[in-house]
Write a protein that binds this DNA or RNA. Structure first.
Lengths: 251, 251
DNA sequence: ATCATATATCGTCCTACTGACGATAAATAG
DNA sequence: CTATTTATCGTCAGTAGGACGATATATGAT
């Protein structure tokens, strides 16, 4: 039995080839709303449907390299300080009607970009508020229950998985700062949590929590009045990778 | 540009095929030690090296189905009540010298099995204490620093990633019970945490924590004296999927 | 039988963290 | 000049968690 399994392993004819793609869940916070970078498909299958940016992995690049390349192509900006991590891999038999495709999804968290869709391939990419396309992820908001356009492939699930991953990571890592510019205020950081989690947080307790968690943020020296009201101190990202104690989502 | 990308997408000749495999990180707790199911490779490449069980994904099965099939083949026991979840996907260009292989790793958590390696393909599979092959994951133990056999491919990293996933999941999910038989004692559950995290926990505080977390465990009615000492109450798994409050690893 | 030992379980004390919320500071809008 | 907005500091009570004492009930040794 074991020998037969080994012979099967090494016989490429018995194990047909797969196409491998990367799909990107690129999230940002715009106007206090969690938003995703989405495209509209121009060709079959699923022509006209909303989809995640992505593409085939090339023979000479690793999965992570493919994800970074696609990200640079779709956002039109290379070498961005965006956080990129693998999300999950999707390999249902008939998720693509043309051939057997295994898709490795990546999650990217970006600050609100100055030129969101400037580049070439990014011509048809645009930011969409997640609450408008997946309202079930924001039960607190009054869901207008509008019929939003269906997604291509299993991209609705991938996007939902990416949002859930981001929500979980905000709890115990300092990744919320990845949604902010290099210098940010406590209020801006709080609005990130509120947008991603779909909740409202007490500004006073949040301020105490952030400034009291060692290594989360470091004073940058200046102040700003970007948001109106009393000027707020500017901070930069700290150096910890794990928040202790963690930020807890309200039950 | 966008049109050219689309034409690339649909031209199978320009995007060569990948082989797709699943690799399994199967963990259990035996004799109070975290152990993994490992095999010894019989053929090149990496003949003689230690490796994770796994194999090629078949054309008609999904990734999860392939993982369950391999698990059944390797453990020799089908329909086991083991927890199985996707871990991560590894796709470095030259991780396999024969061809371009993308491997989707799965994490399985099992109670100590009565017949660990009974089945056919499982002839050369055996349980190995993780601390013996990856001592750097257990800095608290006095590392005997023995040269352990090197792993095939990138399986050392995959195993390490699986252990780290398991460690994290014990904190905020009731998955520790997946290492226990259907009925277990608080002490047995504590030894799971101690084995996986590589720490010692205060039995009194642990008992208070577990019995005080709503939905984690439910009294089964009987008692047992499996471990010697005063008889302990038996419990079964509760119905929550998220522990609140979570079990916290000692800093 | 008695004692040593091992495990299980309950309780106490103290500190840290958190949620609810009052109060003050400093900008802008009218 | 006043209302409004955002930022920041404090207070207070309830909860959770680490350290650890005390007791209960089994097995194994003498």
């Amino acid at each position: 039995m074991a020998a037969m399994t080994e012979s099967e392993l090494y016989d490429p004819a018995r194990f047909p080839a797969f196409a491998v793609t990367v799909d990107l869940v690129v999230l940002t916070v715009r106007d206090s709303r969690l938003s995703a970078l989405l495209i509209r498909r121009g060709e079959e299958p699923y022509a006209g449907r909303t989809a995640l940016p992505g593409g085939f992995v090339r023979p000479a690049e690793s999965l992570g390299q493919a994800a970074r390349r696609e990200l640079a192509e779709e956002t039109g900006l290379a070498d961005l300080p965006v956080h990129l991590e693998q999300l999950a891999t999707y390999g249902t038999v008939d998720r693509d009607p043309r051939m057997r495709v295994v898709s490795v999804a990546y999650l990217a968290l970006a600050p609100d970009l100055p030129a969101p869709t400037a580049g070439g391939d990014a011509a048809d990419a645009h930011w969409v508020a997640v609450a408008d396309v997946l309202p079930e992820l924001f039960p607190a908001a009054q869901n207008r229950a509008e019929g939003h356009p269906p997604f291509a492939f299993d991209h609705a699930r991938i996007l939902a998985d990416g949002v859930e991953r981001a929500r979980a990571k905000l709890e115990y890592t300092p990744l919320a700062a990845a949604f902010c510019p290099p210098e940010f205020t406590v209020g801006e950081l709080r609005r990130v949590y509120e947008a991603v989690w779909g909740v409202t947080l007490d500004p006073r307790n949040f301020h105490r929590k952030v400034t009291g968690t060692p290594g989360y943020v470091r004073p940058a020296g200046g102040t700003t009045t970007r948001q109106g009201g009393r000027p707020a101190q500017l901070f930069t990202r700290g150096d910890v990778t794990l928040l202790n104690p963690p930020m807890l989502r309200p039950a």
